[in-house]
Nucleic acid binder design. Structure first.
Lengths: 216, 216
DNA sequence: GCCCAGCCTTGATCAGTGTCAATGCGCCGG
DNA sequence: CCGGCGCATTGACACTGATCAAGGCTGGGC
């Protein structure tokens, strides 16, 4: 690690993720398949090449919380400790690059670059998790769903957006039940803020109205 | 707020945090005083020497969420981006070591050690934030308060524990209202799980009973 | 094209938590 | 010692979101 990359997001070359190149192996996973398990040894980390992934954690009585959703070029499985604290599962079919941490030593300068990348991604993940805390702690069901849809929609730049997850996953991410998510989606649609075409495709019809629901 | 003189520490570096030694300045803050502000430039980071600190974030309409509480030897103000995304405030009187990130360059090898320390702390913070997400997303008011008290109590190893924050801060950390926190505290006491001596001091009377409320 | 399974939506009701308001308690200054 | 202020507690009630229970849609296989 070179000294002092304290603001990793500022030091932004074109595609830092490319440093990972073809290290490790590529694997494909089918819908719902587990990529790694909660409490499993964390000697690998993963890069999403194609598709979408959720990380989930179960309480002992079965309540489920989704940590986050990940898309192409996101890194997952970075851990401070020796084990994975969430499990990761493919949402649909997806392709994943699997990298053994200990293998990085073999890559010299390149390995150093990658370490820096990992640190930057960890810091970014912290930011995202802090946003998630705001969402869960202080937003109403309606605001939660609106925030979520707006987040997804941003990835599609005005095109029709496609949800890679079902209502249960949305609920477990937002700290709601599936019924409440469904009701809020219906409500946002009734109010003309979004329009659904089937239950996984939607478009934002009133971006400013939606943004009003999403306090920052 | 008063800048203190830099005094060399006598302790030999054993804890990794000691790498920070006496770099930077020490300052004291009085109860409620702001250490840094939300959206302020993040060119410093901070180490709690004595006392306790909260980080908070406000939504535009005034709803408040507390990110976390920090105690002696915790680092705060580490950010991925260029600005602080939460503000930090002293809970009681506290002493803080303030370190300018750019100053680390001057410390060569020591600077590299510190950079590693910062990375480790960021990863640890991510873990803590993920626990916070579980708490907010999937726990009842009663479980939230029980988790919180148990967490605090652990820092006092069976002794009478002292809450460094008031009910409002607990509420804003747990995503509840002050009234609900108060009711849950009363309920836990009625059930004989904890006993309060004044509203900021308590002891755990039935650790296993309390632990049962805190699913993992 | 039809059927079926799985997911999604909707409705009715309920529990938990928030809100509003009043009261209590403890600490500090005078 | 007393009074007042700020925080905490308690109570009554409202409301959000959960729960339970039907249906409805949709997409894939035959």
């Amino acid at each position: 690690m070179t000294a002092l990359s304290l603001s990793p997001s500022l030091a932004a070359p074109q595609h830092p993720i490319d440093a990972l190149g073809h290290i490790g192996v590529r694997m494909t996973f089918s819908p719902g398949e587990e990529i790694y398990a909660q409490d499993e040894d964390a000697d690998m980390f993963y890069r999403v090449i194609r598709g979408a992934v959720r990380t989930t954690r179960l309480l002992s009585d079965g309540r489920r919380q989704i940590g986050d959703f990940y898309y192409a070029d996101d890194l997952i499985g970075l851990e401070a400790g020796p084990v994975h604290r969430f499990s990761a599962e493919a949402l649909g079919c997806c392709e994943i690059q699997v990298i053994r941490k200990s293998a990085l030593k073999l890559y010299g300068d390149e390995g150093v670059k990658i370490e820096r990348l990992i640190w930057a991604e960890t810091a970014r993940e912290l930011q995202r998790t802090q946003e998630h805390v705001m969402l869960l702690g202080r937003k109403s069901a309606c605001e939660k769903v609106a925030s979520f849809l707006l987040d997804i929609a941003r990835r599609f730049r005005g095109e029709v957006a496609e949800l890679p997850m079902g209502r249960q996953d949305m609920a477990d991410y937002l700290g709601l039940t599936i019924e409440t998510v469904s009701r809020m989606v219906t409500q946002l649609q009734t109010e003309g803020l979004v329009r659904f075409l089937g239950c996984r495709r939607f478009e934002v019809r009133n971006a400013t109205g939606l943004a009003c629901l999403v306090e920052t």
